[in-house]
Design a binder for these strands. Structure first.
Length: 867
DNA sequence: ATATCCCGCCACCTG
DNA sequence: CAGGTGGCGGGATAT
């Protein structure tokens, strides 16, 4: 699936706005003014993005907080920044030009010959004229909620000084903006869901600004994960892909989960009446939160309207009237407009076999977790909402910085990376997990089930795939699993289906070996050797393969090898020198604050065992073998993979990464393959990274290393700073990158990567989702991890089974993670309203949301007032 | 035709 | 009861 970005607000902005308009009178004029203002506004990038939160921040000071809406004159008079100037220019020209451009676009197909073109232009001009006439009346776009929201937002500073409480009068806002109050409600409700505003009293809201945004997002993310939204998304994706199959079950599970989970989170606040699940979704506020949650938990950060609607419709979704769906979608559009104007999401389109579908991509802060953490620490002491704000004064800066970084990486790819990174960081050690833990048991089991199903499906598909290669065109169809790696029949590689060993781990367990018997034929087609077992590597797993493990220990070994070393090397003193060396190096690389996980080679933990292990490993790792593996595109049975890309990638990988000539094993550095799962449907292309890569080996060394091939999902790269092809001395990049290396950088060395990363498919990563969730939610994973980990690990988290995400989590060398911290901060969403509501006057528990909300509001008001 | 989503009716609530 | 809220979906407009 390809994602195409669309311009929403942009369009709005670009829309020509003819000035004088009798009909529209003040209102339109007003809008226009607002509009102009926006144009000039620094925060609007060339792209005329809506409101860029991050930018907002920076400019906050400049903004006049309470400014009355209107800027009577042309603000253009004095642009504040170069950008503004540019913008101004653009805006100046924009009306006609843009329209013309648009028209041209429309006619472009015909523009083949000059003559026609000319005609076209003429036509266009005419059209424009007509349009101008028509424009007298405010176009629909000009009245869009998104634009309105921008105007609304323009009135308030992103980061108001805590002391000054800006109150928003709905009436005033409505009148000043020239719209009905009803519309203001729409906006305010969404803003409220993000805590950008708070209701103070009837007809009065107070502007909080974005001080708490990160926190809010963090909370939402947490809740979203708890809600199992990721799985739900996956389910729907799955469904979309035409795999009806068991989806229902999964869905049920999801829903059940959802239902079971006390709707504690934010929603609670907003919607006290948990019981009235039916109602809660109806609230625009809650819908908004949920919608955001979907983005936050989504690996792709892209949520199609359709899926969002379905998920939000709740369990009743079944045939749930089409009308309901429609209504939902309408609401989602409303919400999306506001979010878009906030610069949190942008419109995109996902294309799958069924055609283009409207979707939105999260472009808001992705690293808020870290920020939150920091905040938390600071804020922790001051739990109260208000204090929160104050405390925030601190955090904003850091956040800002981060956000900026993020912003700068305007490339989707990068963004995705960032996201991934963030997630990762928050994983194992992260605070988030702990929370999810609560419901984990049931959840885990469900996920396990899901995973199982998935696996089955996958296996089944893999068979089919081999025989009937799915056309790559529909990347979407890609199955979740990333790679099927042939296991040399005689090879020493011994991978045990650890999965089976530990029930709970099933979910986590990335590997599964398909018995040769199952599909020799197909396998053969793909280059598999008959009877050759192959290993199924779920997209979400990170695996290190070690050769020659005795069966009994295989899993253990594997586990060891696989597990990522958490921040601390401390684990075992027994570690081999090699590992030690490596770690330090890596550390350096990953040095950045958010440093992705540092992939440490845990195996060293048991020197002896490991060594032997290594030996064996090395053996198998002959150039040929490696090559075999790497070159075998065939192996990549992933249905979703795009043939083209795949081919290219493979080739490149093979040529670039595999110094076949020089392959010689270095005893010191046992070959390990790090399997990095694809994320978010990245072409389904994964890489096997030689573990050593991660080490700060010199290029030459790397080259000399016997490296299999590496398939790295873009997202994964972020997490693994060290990843680089042996051929490329990218070490510098990796190490230096503070943002964590980003894909782009990696790309420098190998273009291939980039290509891959770029395409993020909305494709479901069911498995991934399942794994993640299971992981997150289930505490068991950690405890049970021992099986996998081989007990060496100090931290269960370190288990290899952990997904990349987890791995990434380990940012700092220090193992001790702030997990404890996380739990602490959950204030914002869970705070008061709900509880208050209940405890206090909870006058009636009417099933009606409204009541509850009202009640809540009251509470809110009260509390706020008190403060 | 489909995607968007504006508009405002009207039910519910609160004061 | 008046006014505040906001669910909802018809139907206009944009693609």
């Amino acid at each position: 699936m390809e994602v195409t970005t669309c311009l929403t607000l942009k369009d709005l902005i670009s829309t020509k706005k003819p000035k004088s308009d009798p009909v529209t009178d003040g209102r339109s004029a007003y809008k226009e003014n607002m509009f102009d203002r926006f144009k000039i506004s620094p925060r609007l990038p060339l792209r005329s993005e809506p409101i860029d939160l991050s930018k907002h921040k920076s400019f906050t000071p400049e903004r006049i907080p309470v400014t009355p809406v209107k800027v009577a004159e042309r603000p253009q008079a004095d642009p504040w920044t170069p950008t503004a100037n540019l913008k101004m220019l653009i805006s100046a020209a924009s009306p006609e030009i843009r329209d013309r451009e648009k028209k041209k676009e429309l006619f472009r197909p015909i523009e083949n010959n000059g003559i026609e073109k000319t005609d076209t232009d003429l036509q266009l001009m005419d059209c424009v004229d007509d349009i101008d006439d028509l424009e007298k009346r405010p176009s629909r776009k000009q009245k869009s909620l998104g634009l309105l929201c921008q105007k609304f937002l323009a009135r308030y500073p992103s980061y108001p000084i805590s002391t000054e409480k800006m109150t928003i009068s709905l009436d005033e806002a409505a009148s000043s903006l020239g719209v009905e109050r009803r519309r203001i409600y729409d906006i305010v409700n969404v803003l409220e869901s993000l805590h950008l505003v708070g209701r103070v009293a009837k007809n009065q809201y107070c502007w909080h600004g974005q001080h708490n945004l990160n926190e809010t997002l963090s909370d939402l993310q947490r809740v979203g994960e708890k809600q199992n939204y990721r799985a739900q998304i996956a389910c729907f994706h799955f469904k979309d892909m035409g795999m009806e199959y068991k989806c229902d079950e999964q869905k049920k599970g999801c829903n059940m989960d959802q239902q079971n989970t006390p709707f504690i989170e934010l929603s609670e606040a907003d919607c006290p009446s948990v019981s009235s699940s039916s109602r809660k979704d109806k609230s625009l506020r809650i819908m908004s939160q949920k919608f955001v949650m979907l983005f936050l938990v989504s690996t792709t950060k892209i949520i199609s309207l359709e899926i969002a609607a379905k998920i939000l419709i709740e369990e009743s979704q079944d045939a749930a009237d089409h009308s309901k769906f429609k209504t939902k979608v309408r609401r989602l559009y409303d919400i999306a407009n506001v979010l878009t104007s906030l610069g949190l999401i942008k419109k995109v389109h996902v294309t799958d076999e069924r055609g283009r579908k409207p979707a939105f991509k999260w472009i808001g802060p992705a690293d808020f977790s870290a920020g939150v953490d920091q905040k938390m620490e600071v804020t922790t002491t001051t739990p109260s909402p208000d204090s929160k704000k104050e405390a925030c004064s601190l955090s904003p800066a850091s956040d800002r910085v981060k956000q900026r970084l993020f912003r700068h990486s305007s490339f989707n790819v990068v963004q995705s990376f960032t996201n991934v990174k963030r997630k990762v960081c928050s994983q194992p050690c992260s605070p988030q997990k702990p929370q999810g833990v609560e419901s984990s048991d049931s959840y885990a089991s469900k996920m396990a089930h899901l995973a199982t199903i998935y696996k089955q499906k996958t296996e089944e598909d893999s068979k089919h795939i081999s025989s009937t290669s799915r056309n790559g065109s529909t990347g979407n169809a890609a199955l979740p699993f990333s790679v099927v790696v042939p296991v040399p029949v005689k090879s020493d590689y011994c991978v045990q289906p650890v999965v089976h060993e530990v029930p709970h781990k099933t979910i986590h367990e990335p590997l599964s070996i398909v018995p040769p018997s199952q599909s020799h034929e197909e396998c053969t087609n793909h280059g598999f050797v008959p009877n050759q077992p192959y290993m199924y590597l779920p997209s979400n797993s990170v695996i290190m393969l070690c050769g020659n493990l005795s069966e009994g220990k295989a899993s253990e070994q594997l586990a060891k090898s696989l597990h990522l070393v958490p921040g601390s090397d401390s684990p075992t003193s027994e570690e081999s020198n090699t590992s030690k060396q490596e770690r330090p190096t890596k550390r350096q690389h990953t040095g950045k604050d958010d440093a992705p996980l540092s992939l440490v080679l845990p195996k060293k933990s048991r020197l002896h065992d490991t060594q032997s292990l290594w030996k064996t490993v090395c053996k198998p790792t002959t150039p040929e073998q490696l090559h075999h593996v790497s070159s075998g595109k065939e192996y990549n049975t992933e249905p979703g993979t795009k043939p083209n890309n795949l081919g290219e990638h493979t080739e490149q990988v093979g040529s670039t990464l595999l110094p076949s000539d020089h392959v010689h094993v270095q005893p010191a550095v046992p070959p390990q393959f790090l399997y990095v799962p694809t994320t978010a449907g990245l072409n389904g292309f994964n890489f096997l990274v030689h573990a050593n890569h991660s080490v700060g080996l010199s290029p030459s060394q790397l080259a000399s290393l016997n490296v299999p091939y590496v398939m790295v999902p873009s997202s994964a790269l972020t997490a693994f700073p060290f990843i680089c092809s042996p051929a490329v001395p990218s070490g510098a990049n990796c190490s230096s990158s503070n943002g964590g290396m980003n894909f782009s950088q990696a790309g420098t060395s190998s273009p291939t990567h980039l290509t891959i990363g770029a395409s993020q498919m909305a494709a479901p990563q069911l498995f991934e989702a399942a794994v993640d969730q299971a992981k997150n939610s289930s505490p068991l994973s950690t405890s049970t991890g021992s099986g996998m980990c081989g007990g060496s690990k100090a931290d269960s988290h370190d288990c290899l089974s952990q997904s990349v995400h987890n791995a990434k989590l380990h940012k700092s060398p220090t193992p001790s993670t702030p997990k404890s911290i996380r739990p602490i901060h959950k204030d914002a969403f869970f705070k008061t309203p709900g509880s208050l509501d209940v405890s206090s006057s909870r006058k009636r528990q009417r099933t009606q949301t409204r009541t509850s909300s009202s009640a809540q509001r009251k509470l809110d008001i009260d509390s706020s007032v008190v403060n």
